[in-house]
Structures are given as structure tokens and as C-alpha cells.
């Protein structure tokens, strides 16, 4: 078993190490995300206009957590696209590994390490912010634990979504249009553009259980208010179910696409 998993763990480790080298990008991301976080915090302060201070505090915290883990939503790995364009994909396909899992483990590493490299400094910077736009502490230690576990599942979930996205663009040589559309879809429906909690109440049941909400929205809701054990477990099961369903779909699409892939160049 361990023997079988080894290539994937190594891929994870190598990609994680690589990600730590992009410190300049992380710093750039940090500045950008801090700016957007502050603008949104002030915007919501204006929109709430003194009504419902608790709601405003929750929304500000929601915004900050979204900004902290923004990198996880961002599909940056254009490597496979490049390989398809240049033809070096042929070498990758020669590797005796499951291509989908191999890509997922690399993607997981990039998303996790990339997100942590931005989230941890942002957490420290929070102390320097004016109190009215600072994020609040988790509802309870239990809420923090629930959040953390759910967030790990969330990152698994986003990797599956991104693998599906990649399968969609594999056919086209110029992937930029479709890619940016997919990432916008992901950002809108995972709550990065507008907190999903602000959607009309009649939509709430629909919007919280769709797959994109499992990535960051579900964990953040736990952070904001801890959930009773039963509800929490149901939430985790929903996350796991989506991961399984998306993974099955992704694997099917990958198998189809890779069978028909054209190796370009010479």
C-alpha cells in the first residue's frame, strides 16, 4: 500500500518545496489580498450602515478568511497546458503512475502551501489593522477545530473541481478564455466575490450545498459559529460526498481526454 502511494507523496513533497520558492509571488499576493480585504471590509461597513453590528463583524471575518485562502481557489498550474502545447506531455504520460492522482497530489501541494504562505502572514497583519475592520476570533475552540478539519476537506474538493476544469480545457490549445471563466465561476460560487451568507434567505439552502460552497464557505460558516456535533457531521458527509462525486467525474473525464490527447510539436 505504502509502496503504491510513494510516487504521489513524493510528487506532493516536491511540489510543496517548489511552492515555497515563490516568495515574491506570495508577497505580491499578500499585498493584493490585504488591499482587497480592507476595501471589502470598508465597503460592507458602509453597506451595513450601523445596522446589525454582529452581522457586519461576521461578514468582515468571512471576507478576511476568503482572502486568506484565496490562493486555494486560484488555478495557477499552467504546467500541464504548456506540456500539451509543447508536446513534452509525452514524457509525462510515460510515467507509470495514475495521471489524475499524480496531478491531484501536485495540485494539493501547491494549493495548500501557497495558501498557507499567504494566510499566516495575513493573520499576523490582522493585529495592525484598525479594530473596526479586523477579523474576529473563532466562535469557540471547538469551532476552530471544526473549521480546520472542514478546510482540509475543502482543499481536497477544490482540487477535484480544478482537475475537472483542466479536463475541460485540455482539448483547446488556447485555454485562457475557458480557464478564466471557470475560475470566475469558482470564485463567485465559493463566496469570494460576495459572501454566500449575504445571498437572499430563500436561496440559502440551495447555495450552501452546491459543490463550490464546500471549498471555503462551509468551513467559514463553522468558524463563525460552531455547530452541534450532529450538524457538523452532516456537513462533513456532504463535503465528502461531493469530493467522491467530483473525483469520479474527474477521473472519467481525464481517462477520456488522455486517450485522445494529441502530442503536439516534434
Amino acid at each position: 500500500m505504502m509502496q503504491k502511494l510513494r510516487p504521489y507523496l513524493t510528487a506532493f513533497r516536491v511540489r510543496a518545496l517548489l511552492e515555497t520558492q515563490y516568495r515574491g509571488a506570495a508577497l505580491g499576493g499578500l499585498v493584493t489580498q490585504m488591499f482587497f480585504g480592507m476595501v471589502y471590509a470598508y465597503l460592507y461597513s458602509a453597506l451595513y450602515a450601523g445596522r446589525d453590528p454582529a452581522g457586519l463583524q461576521a461578514t468582515i471575518t468571512y471576507v478576511w478568511l476568503q482572502q486568506m485562502f484565496f490562493r486555494a481557489l486560484f488555478m495557477s498550474d499552467g504546467e500541464l497546458q504548456q506540456q500539451i502545447m509543447t508536446g513534452s506531455l509525452a514524457y509525462t504520460l510515460c510515467r507509470p503512475v495514475d495521471q489524475h492522482l499524480y496531478w491531484i497530489s501536485r495540485n494539493l501541494a501547491a494549493q495548500t502551501v501557497g495558501a498557507l504562505m499567504r494566510a499566516l502572514p495575513m493573520l499576523l497583519v490582522q493585529f495592525l489593522l484598525p479594530a473596526d475592520i479586523r477579523m474576529s476570533l473563532p466562535a469557540s475552540p471547538l469551532a476552530l477545530a471544526q473549521f480546520t478539519i472542514s478546510l482540509v476537506l475543502g482543499i481536497f474538493c477544490v482540487s477535484q473541481i480544478q482537475a475537472i476544469g483542466l479536463a475541460c480545457v485540455m482539448k483547446t490549445l488556447d485555454h485562457r478564455g475557458l480557464s478564466s471563466m471557470l475560475s470566475l465561476l469558482l470564485m463567485t460560487f465559493s463566496g469570494n466575490v460576495v459572501p454566500l451568507t449575504l445571498f437572499p434567505d430563500s436561496f440559502q439552502q440551495l447555495i450552501r450545498y452546491q459543490p463550490f460552497a464546500q471549498v471555503l464557505d462551509a468551513p467559514i460558516r463553522m468558524y463563525l459559529e460552531g455547530q452541534p456535533m450532529g450538524d457538523w457531521l452532516i456537513n462533513l458527509v456532504i463535503q465528502l460526498m461531493w469530493i467522491a462525486a467530483l473525483m469520479a467525474l474527474g477521473r472519467w473525464m481525464w481517462a477520456r481526454q488522455l486517450r485522445n490527447v494529441t502530442v503536439q510539436g516534434g
Binding site: L184, V193, V194, L198, P200
Partner: peptide, 13 residues
């Protein structure tokens, strides 16, 4: 999609 975001916010507030 961005338009949707403004509409959501403006319906709410």
C-alpha cells in the same frame, strides 16, 4: 457574474 454580485448586495442592503 460580477453584475450578479452587485445585484445580490443591493437586494440585501
Amino acid at each position: 457574474g460580477e453584475f450578479l454580485a452587485v445585484v445580490v448586495l443591493m437586494t440585501r442592503f
